[in-house]
Design a protein around this nucleic acid. Structure first.
Lengths: 133, 133
DNA sequence: AGGTCACTTCCACGGTTGCGAAAATAACGA
DNA sequence: TCGTTATTTTCGCAACCGTGGAAGTGACCT
């Protein structure tokens, strides 16, 4: 928005950090270098973020928490999650794509269960850590 | 939920399930009831999801991973995260709101550090669990 | 004081996400 | 075979999210 009509703004020279960049090497460059060196590569970071994003939705948390206790079909899971069956199915696909759940067909029913023990661990620590606040 | 019989299924002519709803009580209602009983309340579920959502973004993962190793100012963090300073600052606010990081002013510099040990634990398990897949 | 700098807040915009509804698919029973 | 049904796919929509850039705020320094 270029129009400066109603409000006379104090226009700054706006040079150095106008873009939000830190103009100086204001850094404790030693620490930055060390931390950067220890940082996982982008692919690993992406995988981690993706993994956590699977747990970042209440519906999926409910689904996974249920699967921590029992193997359930989509229909039942939709009841536990209080969502429509398509919505539940879609979340299950996402979780399956990430390798967190697996399924098994029994007649017409698709029984889902946990595929990655990390999920149980993560949910547990998040739940009792959450009480602290 | 009313627990009655845990029957495989004796389906009766229910209406079409065009809406995606499961027309029948096709459920293994015993399991559903048990799982529902064990399920945390909505508030807890929401907190857990919120917590994980903090870790569901690559920028925030990078930031938090860095803070696992050192206390850093926003400027330095923006370098580690390879994001603009405003973007970094905004993510830090979000993390602060969730109680995952805390900060300390030193002159003009705001030094951020981890406030919740759960973050370190969660990142660790997600990183080495992530290699499996 | 005035200027500079680190940081924060505001804003608009692309991209993503979760959802319900409807249609499509697969698998059972009669 | 045909009808029924659990599950998946598709689609469109509304809400949300992360971002860069610009502007605002307050603290240091000379």
């Amino acid at each position: 928005m270029e129009v400066t009509s109603a409000r006379p703004r104090r226009v700054r020279p706006a040079r150095a950090n106008a873009t939000g960049e830190c103009a100086v090497v204001c850094v404790d460059s030693r620490k930055v270098a060390a931390v950067c060196a220890a940082a996982p590569d982008d692919a690993a970071i992406g995988r981690v973020a993706e993994r956590f994003s699977a747990l970042s939705d209440p519906t999926r948390v409910r689904i996974l928490h249920a699967l921590c206790r029992a193997e359930l079909c989509v229909c039942d899971l939709s009841k536990v999650a209080r969502r429509s069956m398509p919505a539940t199915s879609q979340q299950l696909q996402l979780l399956r794509r990430l390798g967190l759940v697996k399924f098994r067909m029994d007649g017409r029913l698709a029984y889902y269960s946990l595929a990655d023990p990390w999920v149980r661990e993560a949910l547990e620590t998040a739940l009792d850590g959450g009480g602290t606040r």
